[in-house]
Every structure is written in C-alpha cells, then in structure tokens.
Nucleic acid binder design. Structure first.
Lengths: 221, 221
DNA sequence: GCAAAAGTGTTCCAGATACACCCATGT
DNA sequence: ACATGGGTGTATCTGGAACACTTTTGC
C-alpha cells in the first residue's frame, strides 16, 4: 500500500474521441462492466501512473481500451468536483481526440463489455460527469475548427473538397456556401491537389487533395 | 496517515496573478521559504483539499497567500510531468487571474518571506515549472484579450479610454491607433460614459467610463 | 437524356486600417 | 505661450457573404 501524511486524490485522464460517420459527429463510448456505474456508458480513460505524464496517460488509455493510436490529442480541461466519483476523490484531466472514421475497428478491452461510436444527437446519460466533458469538448471543437486546421484530422490522407466541407458543416451544424468554402480553404495554402480523382456515384469525379502538414494543426487567423 | 492500494499523486493549484503597473505586465510571485527551491521565486498555490473543487482551491490559496479576493480567475492548463516536483509526484492545475493594480497591497503569508509584483520582462528563474506556466498564461492572455472583454479586469470600476488602450497595448506588445481603438470599443456596446472626469497632469481632463458588466467577461467576435 | 455531384467568378457590404488636427488644462 | 495628453471624421482597403450555371460522369 501507499501512504501519505495527508489525503491524496486519484487522478485520471478521460478522452472524448470524436469522429464523423455519415456526416454526423460521433464520440467513442465504453459500456462499463464494473461498479460504479456498471452498465452505463462512459468515456475511455483511467488512472495516471506515477511515472507517466498526462499526455502519455491519455494515449496509453486510448490504445489500451480501444486499440486506437496516432490520433490528434489535446488537453481539454480538468474536472475536479469533490463528489464526481462516488468511490473516492478523483480528479480527471480531460482530453479530446479526433480521428477519421476509416479503418477504425474498435475492439473492446478486457474490463468493458461494449465499445461503440455514438452520435452526439443520441447521447445517452453518461457515467460520472462525462456528459459535461463531452459538451465542453464539442464547444471547443466548434470554436477551434474556425481558426485552425483541426478539421483535417477527421479525414484520411486524401480527400475531396466536398468531404472537407461536410466536416465543417457537421461540426458547425450549419450549411456553407460551396464556392466561398473552396475559395477560403484554397487561399489558406494548407491544401494541395494530388494526382487522382475520387469516383463515386453517377456523377463527375472529384479532385483529391492532401493536407500539406498532416500531423500538425496550424492556427490560422 | 492516508493509505491507498496504488500510488496517488498530490494535486495542487498554482495561480499566475497578473496586473499592470506602469503599463507593463506584472505577475505576483512569492519567494519560497521552505525546501524545495527555498529562496526561489514561485507562483502562489498549494494542495487541493479533499472536499473542495479546483476553482475554490485556487481562490483559497490566492487569498491565503496574498490576501487578494474577488479577482477574475480561469483555469489555464494542467501540468503533470512526473519529475516537476522533486518531493513526490505533484500534478498542478494552473490558473491565471487578473486584477487592477489599485489598492493592491500584497501581504506575505506565513510560509513565505517575500511577495512581489515582477515585470514579465524581468522574470527571474522560477521554481518547479512555474516559468512555463507563466509563459502559457501570457499567451492565453494575449489571445483572449482579442475576442473578449478580458481587458476590463485590469482596470478599476472607472477608467478612461486612454487607460484602456494602454492595457491593450501592454498585453499585445504593440501600439494601437487612438481613433480606431476608441471607435471599435465604443461600438462594442460594453462601455458607458459616466459623469466624471479624470484630471491628471497639465492637460485636458478625460471622460470616465465604466464596463456595463464588470463581473462577467463577454466573448466578442 | 437524365440524375447527381463537381467545379467555377463577380458583386456587394461591413469591418478594419491609415491618417492629422483642434481642445482643454496646468504651469 | 506652451507643453501635454484628450478628443474627433473620412477615405480606403480587405475579407466575408450572397448568388447560378456549366461540366463530367454512370445509368
């Protein structure tokens, strides 16, 4: 056991991992197998180890519970209400993460019975204060997409301008003018056309583009 | 003593309290009396009690160490590198706070020998990772002043437009056009002139204004 | 040929920028 | 009278918003 001269809280990271499916924003949830909140949906997350920093903990927990790695991850806010966990004092450093929906086959970890993408419009009641975390994350997302290249993180390496526009529309919850959208984004200088077309449906194929810097999120404006 | 089945970190809040003195941004520092970093300057802060939330802790620590209350306070970022404190694992939820310089007579608490406003341009080496905290806080400040009414928090209830302009100039580190500045801020609708003039020096007295909502920081743009 | 999405320019408006002189006061 | 900061208006520029038709493909 580990003993201290005065009470110490437990510290966790919880991660709201977002993706877009069918043009709707989804968040990854786990159904808890263990008490407290057994059977209730919750964000992936877990306790911070004594030798790892907070970002590493968030990455590790995401990988352990879902097998997902290499996604964009950013610290969101720290939630520390005294009674947010019924077991003991637990302070949660919340993160949010973004990933394209492609090639994402969530696999449950050992302590959870179920793992699912859930549309934000159909969010169930969540364990702990995870509902508040998702809400804050969604606000941050909608704000930050407007002054950064965050949106690219929802798409695979190659994408069309229409697909990119759909990302913006889903996150902002509004429809955008096609010509203005394309002009604005091309002027940014963060996109470049690549040789290749996307052929889908009974219509003209679309030019493919790629983000000039796929890994970093640039601040624009 | 308090014992747990697995190691728990200690959690602190640390507060970067900013003010403007002589048109330069200053931060409140304490000189540490105790180890570690005895004699080194540090931010006010301290351990989170088991029954208080994080905001309350930050307010309490600021009051206890400096006697300052009623200032604007906002969570900044959580710093959790494993070795940031040599004693044990300590995770710090950092806050920043703003206050007018008027009527602020910092009084040392019991465990610190000295308490001072230090200009950011003359910042000494700080204890722990407090230098990084101040840096992140300053960036946040410069960003947020541009899309909110944060700047009013640096001024007392009544102020002149020139004084307000000096706040913006100090935080942004740039000089602004007087006519454009006044026009922009008056159009915002967050200021109203009050009866009264500020008479200083050998020149025309200045109209006094007050913020329509002194307590809340509004998001503009 | 028709349905469906891709692709493309111009006009208009509002908000930001640049810029210079007179005013009221204290000494 | 003069030094000092307070106070004011206009022209210009720029980025965002509104808006409709042609192109290419699969069936």
């Amino acid at each position: 056991v580990f003993c201290y001269a005065y009470p110490h809280p437990a510290v966790t990271t919880d991660i709201a991992l977002f993706t877009l499916r069918e043009n709707r924003l989804h968040v990854l949830l786990l159904r808890r197998a263990l008490a407290p909140f057994s059977g209730v949906w919750a964000l992936p997350g877990g306790f911070v180890r004594s030798d790892e920093d907070l970002d590493s903990c968030a990455k590790r927990k995401l990988a352990a519970k879902t097998g997902i790695t290499g996604v964009y991850l950013e610290q969101l806010y720290t939630f520390g209400a005294p009674q947010r966990d019924p077991r003991e004092r637990v302070i949660s450093v919340a993160y949010y993460a973004l990933t394209p929906c492609t090639a994402l086959v969530p696999r449950p970890g050992q302590t959870e019975s179920d793992l699912a993408w859930v549309a934000l419009t159909e969010l169930p009641v969540l364990a702990f204060d995870h509902g508040a975390i998702v809400q804050v994350a969604q606000q941050r997302l909608a704000a930050k997409i407007q002054y950064s290249t965050l949106a690219f993180q929802f798409l695979p390496a190659q994408f069309t301008l229409s697909e990119l526009q759909q990302v913006y529309e889903a996150i902002l919850g509004a429809s955008l003018d096609k010509r203005n959208f394309r002009k604005t984004l091309l002027v940014l200088g963060q996109l470049e056309p690549i040789i290749g077309l996307r052929r889908t449906g009974h219509h003209r194929p679309a030019q493919l583009y790629r983000a000039k810097q796929r890994d970093a999120v640039a601040i624009i404006k």
